[in-house]
C-alpha cells in the first residue's frame, strides 16, 4: 500500500511540475505582460519603464524559477489588475467555490445514484429508458442555458429562489443543480452498468438463495461492490466542478474562483490566471490521487 501511494505521488509531482512550466510559458509568451499592465494606449517608453520596474526584461527561465520558488514558499505573486497579492485573492474567493463544488456534488449523488440503481434493477423497462433519456438530455444541455432557464422559471416566473448572489446557502441551490446536472450522465451510466454486472455475480445468487431480496439485498450485498468504481468517478467529477465553476459562477454572480478567473482573463492579469490554472490542475490531480488510494483501500484487488 505504501509503495502504491508513493508511486502515484511521484506521478502527481511530475505532472504538477510539467503543468507549472506549461502554464507559465504559455501565458507569458502569448502576451506581453508589460503591455497588458500599461494598457492599449501606452507609448513605448512607458511600456519599457514598466518592463524594467517589474523585471520583465530578464530571461523567461529566470522569471519562471523565481515564480515557482515563490509558489513553493506560499508567495503567489502580485496581481496587476486587482493590486493585491494573488494568495489573498484566492483565499477570499475559495469558500464560495468549495461550497458550490460540494453542494453540486451532493446534487449529482442524490440524482445519479438512485436513478442508476432504478435503471439497473428494471432493465429495458420504461424506468430504464427514462433514466437514459435524462442522461442523454443532460449531456446535450449547455450548462449556462440550463442556469438561465432555471432563473427564468424558478426565480422570475415562480420566485422561489433568488436570481443571483452568494449571501446564504439558499443562493447556492440553483447553481448547485446546474453544476451538478453536468455530472449526472457519466455517474448514472456507471452506476447502472456496475450494478447490472454485480447483480449477475455468483455471490448475489448465493445471497438470493439464502433468502435475501429487495432492499436488503441491494444495500447489504450488491450496492457495496457496484459503488466502488462510482467513488473514483465522483472524485474526478469533483475536480471537474472546480474548473466548471467558471460558467456557473458567472451566470449566478457568485464571487468564487471561477468568476475570479473570468475577470482576470478579461483584465489580462497573467499572475492570477497562471496561478488559477495551476491551482485547478493541482486540485484535479490531488482528487484523482485520493480516488486511487480510496479505491485501493476499498478494493484490495487493485493494489499493485
Amino acid at each position: 500500500m505504501f509503495r502504491f501511494i508513493m508511486s502515484r505521488l511521484l506521478v502527481v509531482v511530475a505532472v504538477a511540475l510539467t503543468l507549472s512550466v506549461v502554464a507559465f510559458f504559455l501565458l507569458n509568451l502569448a502576451v506581453d505582460p508589460a503591455q497588458a499592465i500599461a494598457g492599449e494606449e501606452a507609448d513605448l517608453l512607458e511600456i519599457e519603464q514598466i518592463r524594467q520596474r517589474y523585471g520583465f526584461d530578464r530571461p523567461l527561465i529566470t522569471r519562471y524559477f523565481e515564480w515557482f520558488s515563490g509558489v513553493l514558499h506560499g508567495d503567489f505573486g502580485v496581481s496587476y489588475y486587482w493590486n493585491k497579492p494573488v494568495g489573498e485573492l484566492l483565499l477570499e474567493r475559495l469558500p464560495e467555490t468549495i461550497t458550490l463544488a460540494l453542494m453540486s456534488l451532493s446534487v449529482t449523488i442524490l440524482v445519479a445514484i438512485p436513478l442508476g440503481c432504478a435503471a439497473a434493477l428494471n432493465p429495458n423497462t420504461f424506468i430504464d429508458r427514462m433514466a437514459l433519456g435524462v442522461a442523454v438530455s443532460a449531456q446535450a444541455i449547455p450548462n449556462f442555458w440550463l442556469g438561465l432557464m432555471l432563473i427564468i422559471l424558478l426565480a422570475v416566473i415562480y420566485p422561489i429562489f433568488p436570481v443571483s448572489g452568494d449571501k446564504t446557502l439558499y443562493h447556492f441551490i440553483l447553481p448547485a443543480i446546474v453544476l451538478g446536472a453536468s455530472s449526472v450522465p457519466p455517474v448514472m451510466r456507471l452506476m447502472r452498468t456496475g450494478l447490472l454486472e454485480v447483480m449477475n455475480a455468483d455471490y448475489i445468487r448465493t445471497a438470493r438463495s439464502k433468502g435475501y431480496y429487495g432492499w436488503r439485498l441491494l444495500l447489504r450485498h450488491s450496492l457495496r461492490n457496484a459503488l466502488l468504481p462510482v467513488v473514483s468517478v465522483l472524485a474526478v467529477q469533483l475536480g471537474h466542478k472546480f474548473g466548471g465553476s467558471v460558467i456557473t459562477e458567472s451566470v449566478f454572480a457568485i464571487n468564487g474562483l471561477g468568476r475570479l478567473a473570468l475577470e482576470s482573463i478579461l483584465g489580462a492579469d497573467i499572475p492570477t490566471v497562471q496561478i488559477l490554472v495551476f491551482v485547478f490542475a493541482f486540485t484535479f490531480l490531488a482528487l484523482n490521487l485520493l480516488a486511487d488510494i480510496l479505491n485501493a483501500y476499498l478494493d484490495p484487488r487493485l493494489r499493485t
Binding site: L19, L26, A30, G243, V246, L285, N288
Partner: peptide, 12 residues
C-alpha cells in the same frame, strides 16, 4: 487531463 480545459481555452 489535469489541465482546466475551459479556463485555458478562454485565456488563449
Amino acid at each position: 487531463l489535469a489541465l482546466p480545459g475551459l479556463l485555458l481555452a478562454m485565456t488563449i
